[in-house]
C-alpha cells in the first residue's frame, strides 16, 4: 500500500487495503483567484488524482489550475490532538478554522 508505506493512513482511512487513498482537491477557477478547496476524491496515485479532479470537479473548464494533495498530508490546526476529527475549535470565532473550511465565495480583489 503506497499510503501506509510512508505514513500511517490518515484519520479516516480505516481499511487501507480496501480502496484508494483520499485526496483533497483545490481548484483555481479563474486567473487572479486563489485555489479553493472543492472536495475530495480517491485515487491510487497523484497522476490519477489530477485526472479524476479534472473530470469530476472541473468538467472541461479551460484555464483552471488544480492542486491535489493526500488528505493524510494536510496538517491542520487543532487545539486538542487527542481526537483530531472532533477536536474543539475552542475560543476562536471560527470563520475559517480548519481542515476543510476554505470559503466558497472567494472575493474578487
Amino acid at each position: 500500500m503506497s499510503g501506509t508505506e510512508q505514513h500511517g493512513s490518515g484519520g479516516a482511512g480505516r481499511g487501507p487495503q480496501e480502496g484508494w487513498p483520499l485526496y483533497e482537491v483545490f481548484v483555481r477557477g479563474k486567473r487572479g483567484l486563489n485555489h479553493v478547496h472543492v472536495g475530495s476524491l480517491h485515487a491510487a496515485d497523484d497522476a490519477m488524482a489530477l485526472g479524476h479532479a479534472r473530470d469530476l470537479y472541473t468538467r472541461r473548464n479551460e484555464g483552471v489550475s488544480i492542486w491535489v494533495v493526500r488528505s493524510s498530508h494536510i496538517a491542520a490546526s487543532t487545539r486538542d490532538e487527542k481526537d483530531p476529527f472532533f477536536a474543539p475549535s475552542a475560543d476562536k470565532v471560527y470563520r475559517h478554522p480548519t481542515f476543510y473550511d476554505i470559503p466558497d465565495d472567494v472575493p474578487h480583489i
Partner: peptide
C-alpha cells in the same frame, strides 16, 4: 461566483 468554477454537465 461559482459559475466560473463548476461545469454543469458537459
Amino acid at each position: 461566483d461559482d459559475s466560473g468554477r463548476w461545469a454543469f454537465g458537459t
